[in-house]
């Protein structure tokens, strides 16, 4: 131990300043009132702070891996398949897959934020026990974590959009709409998974199963690399239930004017919003019941 000590042992000196202090916190009533109003944001602030320490990893994950797809599939495979001709929707292949990669990247980010960090909160490091004994409520703990994920997705999608713009593969400014669309698609996947994660008492590989057998098939069968209609009909249903497909259809519409009818757009949006609403309600309910609590 290397505590500051005059005599080599940890002494009982020091610590006087706490009692000479002129600093005083605002009254408990103020704490309670502020936490009641802004508690969700305070929790989100904590998560954003912890995400910052993984900033480089998150950045590499958010931008690096889609960039690899862009290079490998969009440019490499794209040119191999078509020469300089267009294959789908009358646009270069890179333009065709960029919206899908944007959405998939957000969905993947939301999936990982909705699994291990939840276990960390309930069990591994009992992170939720910290705010639980402050004026913050269990409901706000859940909401704050969700809000932080939304913010992460918006940042990550914006960075991705910059790269796509550098390749000239998006129509601006209309394409910027794809940023919130990607965040919506991410939450439509993330929140139901978060609701499930909140019920897990012991992690026995469920999370890698989610990654391999839920995220990966949805990624591959959601019209990511070719239109969904290219798949035989018995595989197309995977796209219909996939937030990635609904998000991709909308972001293609925003980024290069892919033809989506008004009522189709509404259905895509409605599917995403319903998944988000169900995930939100269930996650909050599971947090409140598991963290005990009175509110």
């Amino acid at each position: 131990m290397t505590d500051r000590t005059p005599s080599g042992t940890e002494s009982i000196g020091g610590g006087a300043t706490l009692f000479d202090s002129t600093l005083s916190a605002h009254a408990p009533e103020v704490s309670a009132a502020k936490a009641t109003r802004f508690g969700t944001w305070y929790v989100a602030e904590y998560y954003l702070r912890t995400m910052r320490r993984y900033g480089d990893v998150l950045l590499a994950d958010a931008v690096g891996s889609p960039l690899m797809y862009i290079l490998a599939m969009g440019i490499g495979l794209g040119s191999l398949l078509t020469g300089n001709q267009t294959l789908f929707d009358g646009v270069p292949y890179l333009v065709f897959i960029a919206p899908a990669l944007l959405v998939s990247s957000a969905v993947q980010g939301a999936t990982s934020e909705s699994t291990f960090p939840v276990m960390d909160g309930f069990k591994w490091h009992r992170i939720y026990q910290g705010p639980l004994v402050t004026p913050i409520s269990p409901r706000q703990i859940a909401q704050g974590q969700m809000l932080a994920i939304v913010i992460r997705l918006l940042i990550q999608s914006s960075l991705f959009m910059v790269i796509v713009a550098l390749f000239g593969a998006v129509h601006l400014p209309a394409g910027l709409l794809a940023i919130p669309i990607a965040a919506l698609a991410g939450m439509a996947m993330g929140l139901p998974i978060m609701a499930y994660s909140a019920t897990i008492r012991e992690e026995k590989g469920q999370f890698s199963i989610i990654m391999r057998f839920i995220f990966m098939p949805l990624f591959l069968f959601s019209g990511t690399f070719y239109p969904l209609t290219n798949l035989p009909i018995f595989l197309q249903w995977i796209g219909w239930i996939s937030p990635i497909w609904h998000g991709t259809e909308l972001s293609r519409w925003a980024m290069y004017g892919h033809a989506v009818g008004g009522w189709q757009a509404l259905i895509h949006l409605a599917v995403l919003l319903v998944l988000i609403a169900v995930g939100f309600v269930l996650t909050r309910r599971h947090f409140v019941s598991r963290l005990g609590g009175t509110k």
């Binding site: 500051r4 706490l18 916190a25 910290g130 705010p131 004026p135």
Partner: peptide, 24 residues
């Protein structure tokens, strides 16, 4: 943790120095 009580940065920065001193 201080933020969970809605405490402001201007209060927390010096307060944290005091608390760290108290906790050695």
């Amino acid at each position: 943790y201080g933020r969970y009580f809605g405490l402001k940065r201007a209060y927390l920065k010096p307060k944290i120095d005091e608390l760290l001193d108290f906790a050695q």
